[in-house]
Design a protein around this nucleic acid. Structure first.
Lengths: 144, 144
DNA sequence: CATATTAGTTGCACTAGTCAACTAATATGA
DNA sequence: TCATATTAGTTGACTAGTGCAACTAATATG
């Protein structure tokens, strides 16, 4: 494979475009959430009873970041955080009905934006694109 | 194309892995530069006599961000910033020899990391991957 | 020549992320 | 059992990156 692939450069620029446009759309629709919080909400929607450590692990973030992002979501009552009765260290996270509701709106915005940004990209090209990113994520796991 | 592609999610997680690992490697080698500054240096290396607005436009960032990133590079004497004699509003940016030198080191780190993260990805898959990102960037251009 | 535009700069506010220290709860093993 | 280690969560201090608005200085435009 050739050198100077500029992997980081391409990823960086592409994500900045995505993030800035989705955040702009959130503001336009009066939604006071960030893209990162959207990712967390989506994660809680598809995985039941996650705790903060699970989120930190899946998203490959420091647990302190999760705490802070969660605080915002709790303040706005999008998420419930309940201490696990079997293990009082753990706090189970679940979406409230308000959270489920806003998530539907956020998904619509995200899907519309993705449609627009991926115009002209075939299904098979997108599959390859996703496959490469999953491979990078797999290769990027840091051994402890 | 299916909905719920999670374009942002994949991009976000992949880039976070890349950035955090390249910044760690920079620190390990005693390099006090960030990934973003590396991108800027690379850009100045391949495009002669850019001004800050050019950088802001190519990188799709606010011009104020460029000013601040440039200040750090100027302090460390990796870059020269000279007022254009024909148009005194503009400031031409060029790499110093120190800048060219460190850039070679940064490129090595970046290429090594990319090699590691892209292990198992074929040349043609990477080409498709890049093509999709370029398409997103093209579709993401905001009309003024 | 008045006005608009452009390039750069600065201040302010905020999100994201890193790191270290800390508490509380639970697990482990001599 | 009980000292010790580990785990989950929290907080504080710090830095990088970003976005926006206001501003200066220089140039372009009609």
């Amino acid at each position: 494979m050739e050198t100077n692939r500029q992997l980081g450069y391409f990823l960086n620029k592409t994500l900045r475009i995505f993030k800035s446009q989705i955040n702009t759309e959130f503001r336009k629709q009066g939604i006071e959430l960030t893209f990162e919080q959207f990712v967390v909400l989506r994660m809680l929607d598809s995985n039941c009873n996650m705790i903060q450590q699970d989120l930190a692990h899946v998203l490959q973030k420091d647990k302190s970041i999760i705490v802070r992002q969660m605080n915002g979501l709790l303040d706005e009552k999008y998420v419930d955080r309940l201490t696990n009765t079997n293990d009082k260290r753990k706090k189970n996270l679940t979406l409230t009905s308000k959270g489920i509701e806003i998530l539907e709106q956020l998904k619509l915005i995200s899907n519309d934006l993705s449609d627009r940004l991926l115009a002209g990209v075939t299904e098979s090209e997108y599959e390859t694109f996703k496959k490469v990113m999953l491979k990078i994520q797999e290769n990027g796991v840091v051994e402890e």
